[in-house]
Amino acid sequence: LVRYRTISKIPQITLNFVDLKGDPFLASPTSDREIIAPKIKERTHNVTEKVTQVLSLGADVLPEYKLQAPRIHRWTILHYSPFKAVWDWLILLLVIYTAVFTPYSAAFLLKETEEGPPATECGYACQPLAVVDLIVDIMFIVDILINFRTTYVNANEEVVSHPGRIAVHYFKGWFLIDMVAAIPFDLLIFGSGSEELIGLLKTARLLRLVRVARKLDRYSEYGAAVLFLLMCTFALIAHWLACIWYAIGNMEQPHMDSRIGWLHNLGDQIGKPYNSSGLGGPSIKDKYVTALYFTFSSLTSVGFGNVSPNTNSEKIFSICVMLIGSLMYASIFGNVSAIIQRLYSGTARYHTQMLRVREFIRFHQIPNPLRQRLEEYFQHAWSYTNGIDMNAVLKGFPECLQADICLHLNRSLLQHCKPFRGATKGCLRALAMKFKTTHAPPGDTLVHAGDLLTALYFISRGSIEILRGDVVVAILGKNDIFGEPLNLYARPGKSNGDVRALTYCDLHKIHR
């Protein structure tokens, strides 16, 4: 019993810090008490220290592992850092350059016999395009090294910054494609005289377009951006097909006994025919423009016929181009109408809503002055909100995010209106959640004399007048207030005048 009563005193000691020596009952000389009392004092002292730490809000209350900052290894790049964003855009520009100039170089340097010394005699450094290609190869190699040090988000939505895990993730992902696209074939085969082989191998750079397509997928929600990307894709495919079309004609031209190829026909049409040795002929500019003209006309199913396939190889390629053109029509131009419709969806919704308003007016036989006010209010409210119901949009977000959005939407009023000066951010967040926005066209009466005042109004834009009878008592403008002081009276009061809008007004109100 003594032991039980001794232990039962522990909660009292913990909360009230009572010393055991003052209790005459606990001072009985028993061996059990002498053993338990020192333990009680020690526990009391420890609990006292913990309570003191909690009340003082000291940093040592938290466990040590929670006080440590997340460790980022040296030379690790955050995937959302500004440097990584700028670097990704730079790589994107280099990939676009590669997609345009690599097929052009591979096709127009394929057994090209233009006048001038061969590239091997001039030297590697004197070729501007080769120098640019070398810079692109170096940048792609540097990009691989950067990807080995860039964080990523795993399946659990955690940012991984450990170098080993980053390397394994990159090896399992895009490393092989990036490595093949970054191989400097110019340096590996330079001086061997195989410019045709170098041009063909350099087309491996186009593998990076797969990554670019995935990154550009984030802009699919913007109709104008999608339309622009589709047109660029169409032009890029036409450019690639033009390079292939020229390569076919250029390879067949020296081996044909009869002059029936499209390059021969082009030379005869523009007065620059090929001679018996295969030299001469149109310039590279004429060849490229004509090839691009043929691919565009074939892809769009126009086909004027002034550039036509004559050999079997050219006919087979033309059939493939027609098939590609039909697929592009289905996948690209078939979506253009939907994209344009999405661009004008706001206008369509406006006309639909206006039609419903006019049908309501016609069905209920609203008189002319009231009908005009109804239409003007709808037009003004639509121009202010673009038909978007803010309350319906915010309803799907958590309250903390709703408060931040409301604070942002009402920031101008909260910053410049005098009653809100000096208020804490928590108070402003709470008030912003209570605001209701209303609009009024010129001549609209917001409050009639004798109406119950259940709200306090803040003028965000425009001006109003307060009338008693036919006498203008006051004219209020931006950041002015009218209405009933909230919670100042037990019952809502009545208006002693009319409140009429002089201009288009936007008002925020808080109800009782």
Rank of each mutant, 00 (worst) to 15 (best):
L67V: 05
A69Q: 05
R71G: 07
R71W: 05
W75Y: 06
D88C: 02
W89L: 01
L90W: 05
L90V: 11
L94Y: 01
V100H: 01
P103Q: 01
E121T: 14
E121Y: 12
Y124M: 04
Y124F: 15
Q127Y: 12
P128F: 15
A130Y: 04
V131I: 14
F140E: 01
L145Q: 01
V159Q: 03
V159K: 01
I166S: 01
Y170W: 01
Y170Q: 01
G173N: 09
W174N: 04
I177T: 04
V180W: 11
P184H: 01
F185K: 03
L188E: 07
F190Q: 12
L200W: 06
T203A: 11
R205L: 01
R211T: 01
K215Y: 03
D217L: 09
Y219H: 07
E221A: 05
A224S: 05
A224N: 05
A224G: 12
L227R: 01
L230H: 14
M231H: 05
F234S: 01
A235N: 01
L236Y: 01
A242T: 01
I244S: 01
W245R: 01
D257L: 04
L263I: 05
D268L: 14
I270S: 01
G271L: 01
K272E: 01
S277Y: 01
G281S: 01
P282W: 01
P282E: 01
K287L: 03
L292F: 01
Y293Q: 01
F294A: 01
F294N: 01
T295Y: 01
S297Y: 01
S298T: 14
S301E: 01
F304S: 06
S308A: 13
I324P: 01
S326R: 03
L327N: 01
Y329R: 13
A330Q: 07
I332T: 03
G334I: 03
R342I: 05
G346L: 03
G346V: 07
T347F: 01
Y350C: 01
H351R: 08
H351K: 06
Q353F: 03
I361N: 01
I361R: 02
R362H: 13
I366T: 01
P367V: 03
P369A: 04
L370R: 01
N386R: 12
L401D: 03
Q402C: 01
A403I: 01
L409I: 09
N410C: 08
N410H: 13
L413E: 01
C417M: 13
K418M: 08
P419D: 05
P419G: 10
R421I: 06
G422E: 12
A423D: 01
K425R: 09
K425N: 05
G426M: 03
C427S: 05
L428N: 03
A430D: 04
L431G: 02
L431E: 02
L431A: 02
A432N: 01
H439S: 06
A440I: 13
G443E: 01
L446F: 09
